[in-house]
Design a protein around this nucleic acid. Structure first.
Lengths: 183, 183
DNA sequence: ACTTCTAATAGCACTAGGTACTAAGAGCGA
DNA sequence: TCGCTCTTAGTACCTAGTGCTATTAGAAGT
């Protein structure tokens, strides 16, 4: 690896550990062509914990968060719910939601937020999506907060029509009509 | 903790470590009221790795699973790709994809597989979803293998129409029309 | 040229949570 | 009593560190 000064090395160190948390000080020292001690001093200066703590952090994160993020009933944070009428959820776009190159959110996350809200708004044991028509109005970038609003337009028997709009601040980024069924 | 024989203790040990993998030998010894050495012998006999390896395993699971599940370019396994023409991917429905109560796959996972394929099929740096019209034909259950096929119907300038169908064996479960844009 | 400062390096003692191995005592059936 | 299992104890060693001190290399100031 090319020579660099302290500042640059520390920046790159932060980025590297962020993307590959499973590297020992020794492996890091090899990559940056400095001694292990230098890496330790850098970590100390940057407040980066040791390997085992990093591994533990990743493990604990998964152990609790992932399960609730991907398997929870509603994608995002449910902040208002009036069953069979209206629901609002908020989803903050993090690195796991975006194309790494462009930092633009992948479409299915907006769909997931909207779909799970359209399903969750209906007061029934089992609700499944029948059809959906969605339009992406503008790209959503890393760090933006998606406010998703679902409104029940029609509710007849086991079929419901739900309109969903997603905004960033007052900017419409996504809208869709969902037809969902209860069983 | 109540006294027990070796067999019972080892059974309970397996169960305990399975549900709480973050316990040290010392903590385990306390719980079972035996010496640390006994716990070590038990782990050895049962083939249970040490704490650090257990933590690492949990961490690696998340690190690969989450990245490949949530952040990979195509959701599912890409098994055929003819750019700007046709693409096929396979997604096996696991516990993380279903409503825990009904074991039916949540709609947005089928959408995600279809959407990411519709985007990935186009030969361009940046491709974004414009609109989508999707229909869910029948519920998909835990353990089923979704075979998703995307076909480019029209490609004019920066806009493309992609038809997507998803089947379980020969059974159509999902179909959609996507309009995607290149930038 | 000499001092001063910083960055980098080296060495040592110590820690947690182990592995691998040896040794020894308790309890029990034949 | 012998033989056997189970349990406990102890030692040496390992990894991936922390924390501290001492030393060296290079650049900057005067």
């Amino acid at each position: 690896m090319a020579a660099r000064n302290k500042k640059q090395r520390q920046q790159e160190l932060t980025a590297l550990i962020d993307s590959e948390p499973f590297l020992t000080d020794e492996e890091l020292a090899d990559r940056f062509e400095v001694s292990v001690q230098t890496i330790r001093l850098d970590r100390l200066a940057l407040g980066i914990p040791e390997l085992r703590e990093r591994i533990k952090a990743v493990a604990e994160q998964n152990y609790t968060e992932v399960r609730s993020l991907e398997s929870s009933e509603v994608i995002g944070e449910l902040i208002d719910l009036d069953l069979n009428k209206l629901a609002i959820s908020i989803l903050e776009i993090g690195p796991e939601h975006v194309f790494s190159r462009t930092k633009i959110a992948r479409g299915h996350h907006l769909f997931a937020q909207a779909n799970s809200l359209a399903v969750g708004i209906i007061d029934a044991e089992t609700v499944l999506t029948g059809t959906a028509e969605v339009r992406y109005k503008r790209p959503v970038k890393l760090g933006e907060r998606l406010v998703c609003k679902a409104v029940v337009k029609e509710l007849r028997g086991e079929r419901a029509h739900v309109d969903v709009t997603t905004k960033v601040r007052d900017d419409l980024v996504f809208e869709g009509q969902f037809v969902v069924f209860t069983m």
